[in-house]
Every structure is written in C-alpha cells, then in structure tokens.
C-alpha cells in the first residue's frame, strides 16, 4: 500500500518514533566519544557510525513527520520528554567506560538490524523502501560491533572481565528495547510491521548469544515482562530529562530558525 489507512497512523507513528528516538539518542551518546575512543582508528570509525545513527533517525523522523503533518526537526527537538519513546538503554551515560559503550551498541545494533529488517518487508511501500536501504547500513554497524566484542573478549583477562561486567550490567536494561509500542499488534496483523519466526526476542537473543559465545563471553537475557512499562510509553530515567534539555537548548533559542 502507498497510502496508510487512518487507523494505522497512530500506531505506526509510535513505532517509527521508537526506532528514530533510539537512534537519535544513541547517536548523541556515542558522539561523546569523538576524540576519546581508545585508538585513533576506532575513534574515527565510532564517530562515523554515530553519524549514521543520526542520519537514520532523520530519515525515519521524516516519514513520521509526513504522517502527522510535522517536520523532522520538530519531532526531534520540540517534544516533551514523556513524548519520546526511546528505550532506557540508550539514555544512560556510558560514563566513558568503553566496555559499556561497546556492549550498549552491541545490544542496540543487533536489535535495530532485526527491526529494520522487518520494516524492509512492510506493506507500507515508502517505509519498506527506506528501511531496505537502512538495514543494509545497519549491517555494517553489526559487523563492526561484533568485531569489537570478539577482540575485547579474546583480548586479555582485563578486557574480558570488563566486557563481561558491562554485559551483565546492561543485560537487564537491554531487554527494554523489546517493550512493544502501543498498537503494534495491529501493525503486525496488517503487515506494516511483519512478524518474524522465531519471534523478535528469540531471534535477538540467539544472534547476541552466538557472537557472545564466539567472544568467550556469557550472556543471560530474561524475556521482558509483558506488563513492564518504560521508554516505549514515555517513561524515562532521570538522566533523560537533562540529556534532552541539553540536546534541545540551541533549538529552543529560536525554534523557527532555518538551518
């Protein structure tokens, strides 16, 4: 379908915002590493990949903006904190702990890869076309972060311990990525967000565990409780309000300014 039925609009906008918000905030967090990553090569690569996150976010905001009659800038900068639908995992500061930064991207990139892969088969044609391009780029992120995980897992005792403790610390938060947005069942039923077999959590866990094992790291993931309410319903950590405040301060000076 080229035109979206009205009853699917709100659910799709929420799903798109959850994808774009994750990428926008993750890209912003990752950008903090520019000039600080452990080696020069990785510094440049990590910055380049975080630019991808932002550009993916822009492209998805644009589709959402078209559906609600807004603009990508307004969606990115002019919503209230509880209108953002990102997961808590992307909000927290990695405290410039490289192991945390790598593991966070490990969880997010694998999740984004599956999510964009599903959207690439969407019955809503404009979205499928965009997601088809984005998923090919997301694969680069997955390859890159898997490479880092394997290197650090196989590095020495210190690097393995740091990675293991980062994985253990982030795993309970990471499953928050899987929290469904409102109305997702309708989108699945209409093929706008096609289901996959095995289902999302199993696929994601399997992908992650496969790489973790090859990296000599252990990974325990509990399926998220169905009643758990978090980022996808606009509930965010305390860190998020101050993050957003800083992120939007230039925009708020003159919201109508042309850039």
């Amino acid at each position: 379908m080229d035109k979206l039925p009205n009853e699917l609009k709100q659910p799709l906008v929420e799903l798109l915002l959850s994808v774009a918000d994750d990428k926008f905030i993750l890209g912003h967090r990752n950008a903090d590493w520019t000039g600080l990553a452990p080696i020069l090569e990785e510094d440049i690569a990590f910055s380049s990949l975080s630019q991808d996150e932002i550009s993916h976010a822009i492209a998805i905001y644009q589709i959402a903006a078209g559906l609600v009659g807004s603009t990508a800038d307004k969606l990115a900068y002019a919503r209230k904190p509880d209108e953002y639908l990102c997961a808590e995992l992307v909000e927290l500061s990695d405290e410039f702990n490289w192991a945390i930064a790598v593991c966070r991207n490990f969880f997010c990139d694998h999740h984004d890869y599956l999510r964009l892969g599903r959207l690439a088969h969407s019955s809503y044609v404009p979205l499928a076309q965009l997601a088809g391009r984005l998923v090919a780029e997301e694969q680069i992120h997955v390859q890159h972060v898997d490479m880092l995980l394997k290197r650090l897992g196989h590095g020495d005792t210190e690097s393995r311990e740091r990675m293991q403790s980062a994985l253990d610390r982030l795993a309970p938060l990471a499953t928050g990525l899987l929290e469904p947005t409102q109305g997702i069942e309708l989108l699945e039923a209409k093929g706008v967000y096609p289901r996959i077999e095995p289902a999302m959590f199993e696929r994601w866990t399997e992908d992650l565990r496969h790489v973790a094992e090859a990296s000599e790291l252990k990974l325990q993931l509990q399926a998220p409780r169905a009643e758990a309410i978090g980022g996808r319903r606009g509930r965010h950590s305390d860190a998020f309000a101050s993050l957003l405040d800083e992120l939007t301060e230039v925009y708020r000076l003159e919201p109508e300014a042309a850039w």
């Binding site: 080696i39 090569e41 990785e42 440049i44 690569a45 680069i140 390859q143 890159h144 490479m147 290197r151």
Partner: peptide, 14 residues
C-alpha cells in the same frame, strides 16, 4: 593500523 585484516577492513570502510 589494525591487529588483523578483518579489523583493518572495518576501519578502512569508515
């Protein structure tokens, strides 16, 4: 600079 070709290729792409 990389520890092996796979890593070098990842860096080179970016």
């Amino acid at each position: 600079d990389a520890v092996d070709s796979e890593m070098a290729l990842q860096f080179a792409r970016e």
